[in-house]
Computed example of a mutant assay.
Amino acid sequence: MSTSTLRSLIPDSLIIANNEYYTLLALLALLTLVGLAATFAFGAKKSSKNTILITGLPFAGKTVIHYLINHNRSVETITSIKENEANVVLTEGKSSVHIVDIPGHERLRFKFSEFMPIARAVVFVVDSATVARQTRLLAEYLYDILSNKHAQEERLPVLIACNKSDLITAFKKDRIQSLLEAEINKLRQTRTAALDTQDSEGNENVFLGFEGKDFAFQDLENEVDFIECSAEIKNVEDIKDWIAAVSS
């Protein structure tokens, strides 16, 4: 780009004594200010998304985990009919994190989409002891979350929290990952025909992973992690650490 072209991009008020050298410096300063403003705006937008969603099927232990994280105590729970919300400081000196426990009932679980525009990350709770019987339902729910337009655009990190890992009948996280990947792989085929449609919940029927390759979480642009935990014995520290890390 010639100096004369650069000069044409600068308001007359910034052209200093018709000096090309100073004019170039003025342009560079202007571009720097624009870059800083854009960076600040992006950072402000990201920091405003401080909501962590806790999702999953009924009886997975979502609400107990929610209370352990927010109040460091467990409670007897029933199937939630309304989301539970709380603000909690996980790291001393850091801002509080807004945590929302989404009801798992089939008529209410879609409400996760209402919070996705302000979500920073998603914790998807799985009952490790019953996962083999619920794999299809889990895969469908997880597919809806991963294909949500906000999850796609923001590349929201997702934690698969394998709860009740203390039970003798519990599956290990690697086995749970394999079950979910195999089921999502089959589920993709039934949704491929609707790739260009968008439902009322704001979810796009996108194709997760790579075509021609079996589905694997590692192929997603979203970072997906698996951890084992147990709300029953108050072992949720790994969840708290993960939330603190993605919220910083």
Rank of each mutant, 00 (worst) to 15 (best):
S4I: 15
T5H: 14
I10Q: 00
D12T: 15
I15Q: 07
I16H: 11
Y22K: 14
L27R: 12
L28D: 10
A29P: 13
L31F: 09
G35Q: 11
L36N: 08
L36H: 07
L36A: 12
T39R: 15
F42N: 14
K46H: 10
S47Y: 04
I54D: 04
P58S: 00
A60Q: 08
V64R: 10
Y67M: 08
H71Q: 14
N72A: 13
S74G: 08
V75E: 08
T79L: 09
K82T: 10
K82I: 05
K82W: 02
K82M: 09
E83D: 09
N84W: 04
V88T: 13
L90M: 06
T91F: 01
S95V: 12
V97F: 02
V100S: 00
D101Y: 03
I102A: 00
P103N: 01
E106V: 11
L108K: 07
F110D: 07
F112Y: 07
E114Q: 12
E114W: 10
P117D: 07
I118E: 11
I118D: 12
A119V: 01
R120G: 00
V122K: 06
V126M: 06
D127I: 05
V131W: 01
Q134C: 13
T135E: 12
L137K: 06
E140F: 06
Y141L: 14
L142A: 00
Y143N: 15
L146V: 03
S147I: 00
H150Q: 02
Q152E: 03
E153I: 14
E154C: 09
V158S: 01
C162L: 09
T169S: 13
A170Q: 03
K172P: 07
D174K: 13
I176G: 05
E181C: 01
E181N: 00
E181V: 06
A182Y: 12
E183M: 05
N185G: 13
R188N: 06
A193R: 12
A194W: 08
L195Q: 14
L195I: 15
T197E: 14
D199K: 06
S200H: 09
G202H: 03
N205D: 11
V206G: 02
G209V: 06
F210G: 13
E211T: 13
K213C: 00
F215C: 00
D219R: 02
N222M: 07
V224F: 07
V224W: 03
V224C: 03
E228F: 00
I239C: 02
I243D: 06
A245M: 12
V246G: 04
